[in-house]
Design a protein around this nucleic acid. Sequence first.
DNA 1: ATGAAAGCGCTAACAA
DNA 2: TTGTTAGCGCTTTCAT
Lengths: 328, 328
Amino acid sequence: MVKIVDVAKQAGVSTASVSRVISGLPGVSEETRERVNAAVKSLGYRPDLAARRLRSGRTDTLGLIVSDIRNPFFTEISRAVEDVAYQNGLRVLLCNADEDPEKEAFYLEMMRDENVSGVILSPTLAILSSLRPASYPFPLVLVDRCERDTNADAVVLDNFDAAYRLTEHLIAQGLRSIVFLYGSVGSTGPQRHQGYLAAMAAAGLAPEAEPIAPRSERAREVAEVLLQRQPRPDALVASSGLVLLGMAEAVKAAGVTVPTDIAIAGFDDLPWTRLVTPDITVIRQPTDEIGQTALRLLLQRVAAPDRSVRRVVLRGELLVRGSTQARV
Amino acid sequence: MVKIVDVAKQAGVSTASVSRVISGLPGVSEETRERVNAAVKSLGYRPDLAARRLRSGRTDTLGLIVSDIRNPFFTEISRAVEDVAYQNGLRVLLCNADEDPEKEAFYLEMMRDENVSGVILSPTLAILSSLRPASYPFPLVLVDRCERDTNADAVVLDNFDAAYRLTEHLIAQGLRSIVFLYGSVGSTGPQRHQGYLAAMAAAGLAPEAEPIAPRSERAREVAEVLLQRQPRPDALVASSGLVLLGMAEAVKAAGVTVPTDIAIAGFDDLPWTRLVTPDITVIRQPTDEIGQTALRLLLQRVAAPDRSVRRVVLRGELLVRGSTQARV
DNA sequence: ATGAAAGCGCTAACAA
DNA sequence: TTGTTAGCGCTTTCAT
């Protein structure tokens, strides 16, 4: 294995100069720089990261802990984060907590051990309620999930507003009995529930909501029961892509016609929402922007650890489609 | 920061003993072990990974480079790999090459720099054609993509067989003019194409295939043209979930009825294939098994670097659904 | 079973 | 601008 002394010898300079050159530090003559670069190239030298990290205390690494990598929403965010990180020469440790607080805690510990510069986290509810960012030796940026009083940098959707507008849209279509199915684990479901409640109240309508475990199977079961009911609700609204999926399955299985028999709508502009017939009205989340913003926020925090906490609230986009067409 | 000497002092032993205890090495008395563990706990000691890696040369880390993290197929594999790794106390560096050979090369270099124990890779075609596993300082296990003569451990689907059976099924439904749309970049598309050709030949039917760039937009464009044609083909078959998505979009846009006007089928058992009406016949890939097997293969290779190269070929599962129902 | 001590390869403080 | 050198925190050899 070729090391820094080999390069130094070959270039006829000291290891310090080599170090300066490969780290891009100033204080090296152009000639030296060239000689070192030539030696690096000819020897195929690559600095030992472990040594470098041990000595410098820096890792140029950041962590990304998502709550469920299989959820396309988080996949998109991961891709966006990774892309920006790649452009900035940063390494990303991508971890999947699988909605398991224990795994999440493990990875948070691991981030500490890895001495990362910072972490982007979509927290499980368990940790969110007791999160003290100051207790971690690295800056933390939350994505997707965040309570009103959480004291950390965060990038989130305006969940209340998005659900409000979605509900408002349904009401404008003349729908009256609108049932909201929401994932009760986590913060986004309940926040969206609030938006739904507010919109219903504003229209003087009676709300009806079903909190469920955020799995499509559960959503399907609950939706199936609702579809059996006489009279049937006018509309079903899902608080997430996962819930929407289960809901769509139930609708298909029950053989009811959308939007004639019932209207449906939900969150997350997943590819399949435009494939089914009719296509489904959803709130699109700006996943790319969320990921990029989170990374930018993290980088800024690393640069200025003491600046005040920021929360970036992004607006969802209402995509009106066939599933909520007004009945004629 | 508390370090190993602090623990040694507190426990009244040498740093060597502490090291042995925290590394689970033998040659320590039970009493010493307990004293050290107590000290570790009371001080909240966590070994410095950089120092440990520098000194020992080991990292207990492996790399996973997927060609496209947004493809659910790879997401599933990532989750499976990560899950097994987590259980084995291994870290996974998950990287997304984004189907970009340059990014792939960068990450492969990075794996070398990180001194990982091994890498699981779904290679882009660019690298696959010239892959020399021996030129990497770590063992390599390929997933999903692999040429017949690739000299590396690999876990792949029997693409030929899967496409053959899928085509056979269509032929058995009485369909005659069956057009195969396949991603021409990569190895899986062409391999599946071969299976299709063989099945058509065996039935004495004239094949017709369209190689396309593996993006759903391209698939959609090509499918739209095919749907316009008079007479229309009897069936459209997609070589991947991505192609199938574009195909389904085209079918929906054209307003043709499945399976009466045309039958469609493809690869990858994605959630939406059961949501559209009718649901779509597909070949399911055992993603969990692929991921788990890849990691196991890698671990075995790490343990025995010189054992002969293995290739695990998994069988796809034909899921017959409404989109290929025989016409009455 | 235990401890003393030599580095792993690099960076950065300091001297020149 | 350049070089010398002292460690970063740990593992591991070699004595004991």
